[in-house]
Every structure is written in structure tokens, then in C-alpha cells.
Amino acid sequence: MILLGRMLGAFGVRGQIKIESWTEPREAIFGYQPWILRDPQGRQREFKGARGKPSGKHLVASLPGIEDRDAVEAMRGTEILVPRSALPAPQPGEFYWVDLEGLRVVNLQGVDFGTVSHLFSTGANDVMSVQGDRNRLVPFVEPDYVTSVDFDSGVITVDWDPDF
């Protein structure tokens, strides 16, 4: 399952909900349905028919069968997941973040930094969190800092000072 976003809470009083989407573009999340909704307690259910639009830095969505603010507030923190098979194959030179997680990271001098635990966006660029002897945050900027991604060997090579 691939995590595409999460529900942030109510928007207005008519049962709309704010959604944080990690798809690109962010509205693409509505094209990957049905969703598997996983609430903060870990319970899952399938859901289809969500539609929405951008509103500021989030999306505002309407969910069939959910029509009041209290029902929406109960969904706060719910994760939106889809099966990996629902996503299109990445174009050459593109990567899904989930495909990078777990890859080993080494620099040009062969220093092993550890493995990618997760990625996040800062707005300016994406950043890899690399867990090894310590946590390193390495900008995922090609070719400036990320010089190669080799899925066959499971290694990302970076031009990054090990002391930074």
C-alpha cells in the first residue's frame, strides 16, 4: 500500500474535509480510487467517490455519505492509501519516494551513510532522511547532490560531505 495523503479535519459546516496530498500534482489523489482509509487506530476500510479541489496549500474534499462536521472531525488523522498497482509506472529519471526508501546511500568517496528511512518536501526541494551511524538529511537534488540511483544494486550515490 502506498500512502498518498491524510485527512486534516473539517472545512466549514457541510461535511467537507481538508486533505493533505503528496501526489504531484496534488489534485491527482482523486484519480487513484478506491482509497483505503486507515484511521489513527489502524482500522481500514475501502472508500470511493471522493472529489475535491485546491484550497490554499491543501485540498478540500467531499466524501459520499459524510455530510456533517462531526463525522468529518472523526476522520482527522486518517491516512489515504492505494495499492502500488494503482499508480502508473514512473517515467525514466522519475522515482516514487516509496521506491527510494530502504536503499543504501553512499557518497562519492564510498562512505556508507546508511539507508533512506523516508523523504519529505521542504517546498524548495525534496530531502532524504538517511539513518546510519547518525541521521543525515540530504537534499534529493539531481545531479547536484544525488549523482545516481541504482535500483539493481540498491544504492543511491550522493556528492555529500559525511561530516555535514
Rank of each mutant, 00 (worst) to 15 (best):
D39W: 11
G31F: 01
N135G: 01
R45E: 13
L63A: 06
G77W: 11
A50Y: 10
V72Y: 06
K48F: 11
G102M: 06
L63R: 12
G110W: 11
L87K: 06
L63C: 05
A61L: 06
V105Q: 01
A61S: 10
E73G: 00
Q109G: 03
P25I: 07
F151P: 03
S121I: 03
K48N: 04
S129P: 00
H58K: 11
S85A: 15
P139V: 07
T157H: 14
F95H: 15
D99C: 05
V105E: 03
M1Y: 08
V127T: 14
A71Q: 15
D152A: 15
L3T: 07
T23W: 00
T122D: 01
S129T: 06
R38Q: 15
D39M: 03
T147K: 14
E24W: 07
R6D: 08
E73S: 03
S153C: 01
I29A: 02
W97M: 09
P90Q: 10
E20S: 14
Q109P: 00
Y32I: 02
G5F: 00
I156C: 02
V127R: 11
M75R: 13
W97N: 09
P88V: 00
R136A: 12
V72D: 02
A28P: 00
I156Q: 00
L37G: 05
R51D: 02
T115K: 15
N107S: 08
L59T: 02
G49A: 12
P25D: 01
Q109D: 12
V130P: 04
S55Y: 13
G15D: 04
